[in-house]
Design a protein around this nucleic acid. Structure first.
Lengths: 222, 222
DNA sequence: AGATCAATCAATAAGTTGCTTGAATGATTA
DNA sequence: TAATCATTCAAGCAACTTATTGATTGATCT
């Protein structure tokens, strides 16, 4: 049959976009880039890939519009593209979660039934912030924090948290966040804090989602 | 580095889902299945693929939860899975459209600037239907119509439309729909009708989207 | 039971993707 | 202008994906 009509072309185009998201390394790169603009070398470092390999993946992401570049001296900085990328990722995550839940209902899966710590939605958080009743805690690295963070957030990287508990309020609630729904930093941080008697929840979506929603972002001086 | 932690596993899982959508043939199969349950042979016919190849693609779709099966006699009927599939597809389409629009702004692309016939959203359609001010026209095949259609829709398959114009009201507005946003049936139908002086728009999303929104669907007797 | 039909499986060949290596490019600095 | 640095390109290989073919399974029908 082999009909190469407009219909088929559109599907091929869609398929190419989907295929670009179809590799764990590219999704990781995308997550890191979503925290803020970075050069190839840094991304290679963060993901543990070789530089050439990283560059190749970035090229694919760029062809599909997921990232954009600009040159600054000898480095090429990659940033997130400006299409509705977080929406696509969010829907994929929601779909994955749905199927995982279905599997969990059949075989009771110990890996996925981990503690289920309370999480809070972006909308709820906005309300609580307006009421001034929460402390926001950014547990990402200080590099990531510097690239942009939620307004008024306190930055204590996850690995320093245990030594810096005194900086946290024991009276009112803490909301911890990190790179996104698939980033475990805020989950483990929140579990630890809860064990120490803090009132704590984690933000269900991370920094990139907040930024994608066009909410205000604070940034260190460049 | 090679850290095979939970983080990486989640990304691999997401990537597998995305990769499953990363082939035009699978997207086509999915579109047909979204019209209603069908046996492998029929799907092979509709897509022009061999039966074995179709079966193989369907298997991948099933592993990712996009489709489910049941046996009826010697045939195996495939139907859409029950996760938020339309949401994923819609976000991918929206993303594709965004990037395409960006490209169009740079090089004025004649392929994509086709007539831009007025389309109507599902929400708007619901309002108009409540007001009783539109005629709904299903231009898919009668087979697809029988598998399920919007309540009260009139079925005139696209290829019979020109001979059956008398069945259409010239007084009030017609809303044509078909298999989905990437299906051209309703677009060409609407263009033809417009040229003949009918007041006509096309539903931006097709039948599967309506069904996914849990709106009422009419069906012929089995 | 044997024949028939629909679908899946298994094996293969062709094509594609991913990763590594080393060379080439582009921009800065000495 | 040469040296250096960050990134990209190009070639080669291994691993995976797709499409085809023919064999196998599961379910009806006679």
């Amino acid at each position: 049959m082999m009909k190469n009509d407009a219909h088929t072309l559109l599907f091929s185009e869609l398929a190419e976009i989907a295929r670009t998201l179809g590799h764990a390394h590219r999704l990781m790169l995308l997550e890191h880039i979503a925290q803020g603009e970075r050069p190839v070398e840094r991304l290679a470092d963060l993901t543990g890939l070789t530089i050439a390999n990283t560059s190749q993946h970035l090229q694919l992401l760029r062809r599909a519009g997921f990232v954009e570049t600009r040159r600054e001296g000898k480095r090429v900085l990659y940033r997130l593209g400006n299409g509705p990328i977080e929406t696509v990722l969010a829907s994929l995550r929601a779909y994955a979660e749905h199927t995982r839940a279905e599997i969990r209902d059949l075989v009771s899966d110990p890996i996925n039934s981990n503690g289920r710590l309370d999480s809070i939605s972006r909308e709820d958080l906005l309300e609580r912030l307006a009421a001034g009743s929460v402390t926001l805690l950014d547990v990402r690295s200080s590099e990531e924090y510097a690239l942009g963070h939620l307004p008024g957030a306190l930055n204590i990287p996850a690995d320093e948290l245990e030594q810096r508990l005194t900086e946290l309020p024991s009276s009112h609630e803490i909301v911890a966040y990190c790179r996104g729904p698939y980033c475990v930093l805020s989950t483990t941080a929140a579990e630890m804090l809860e064990a120490r008697g803090f009132r704590v929840r984690r933000l269900a979506s991370g920094f990139p989602d907040w930024k994608a929603a066009d909410l205000q972002v604070e940034q260190a001086a460049a």
